[in-house]
Amino acid sequence: MPDSANRLGYVHSRLVRHSAESAAAIPDFGAEGDRIVILAGDRVLLSGDTALLTPAEASRAGVPGLTLFLGRLDGAPVFAAALPAEVAEAYDAEPPFRSNDLRSLAGEGRIAAHELGLLATAKSLLGWHARHGFCANCGTPTTLAAGGYRRECAACGTHHFPRTDPVVIMLITRGEACLLGRSPRFNEGMYSCLAGFLEPGETIEDAVRRETFEEVGLTIGAVRYHASQPWPFPASLMIGCVAEALDDAITIDPVELADARWFTRAEAAAMLEARHPEGFTAPPPLAIANLLVRAFVDGRV
Rank of each mutant, 00 (worst) to 15 (best):
R151Q: 07
P166E: 07
F197H: 14
C135K: 10
S13C: 04
F263Y: 09
G107K: 13
L194Y: 04
R210W: 03
A81Q: 01
G189D: 06
L39F: 03
E115F: 05
T212A: 00
L286H: 12
T158Q: 13
A23N: 12
L66Y: 05
N187E: 14
S183I: 06
R98H: 10
L116V: 06
I111F: 03
R17S: 07
G127S: 02
E176S: 15
G109A: 07
R98L: 14
R14V: 07
T219Y: 11
D298C: 00
A93S: 13
Y225S: 06
I169Y: 00
L198N: 11
L68S: 11
G107R: 15
G157A: 11
A245Y: 12
E152S: 13
D165Y: 09
T219P: 10
R150Y: 05
I111G: 00
H114A: 04
Y91A: 11
R7G: 10
V255I: 15
T203A: 09
T164F: 00
A31E: 11
N290V: 07
R224N: 12
E214F: 11
E199S: 15
C138R: 02
H129F: 00
L73Y: 03
G299S: 05
R163Y: 09
V297C: 02
R98V: 15
F233Q: 14
G48K: 11
R275Y: 04
S4F: 14
A243F: 04
F161I: 13
A61I: 06
E21L: 15
A154N: 10
T264H: 13
A130F: 01
A258I: 07
L218W: 08
P285Y: 06
A58K: 12
R210I: 03
P230N: 02
P141F: 10
S19L: 15
M190E: 15
L68K: 09
H12A: 14
G221A: 14
V87K: 12
S19W: 15
E188W: 07
G41W: 05
H132A: 03
T142Q: 15
A282D: 05
E188H: 11
L286P: 10
L272P: 04
Y91G: 02
G148S: 01
R300A: 11
R14G: 05
L286C: 01
H159P: 01
A207M: 12
V223W: 10
P184L: 06
A245F: 11
E86W: 04
F29A: 09
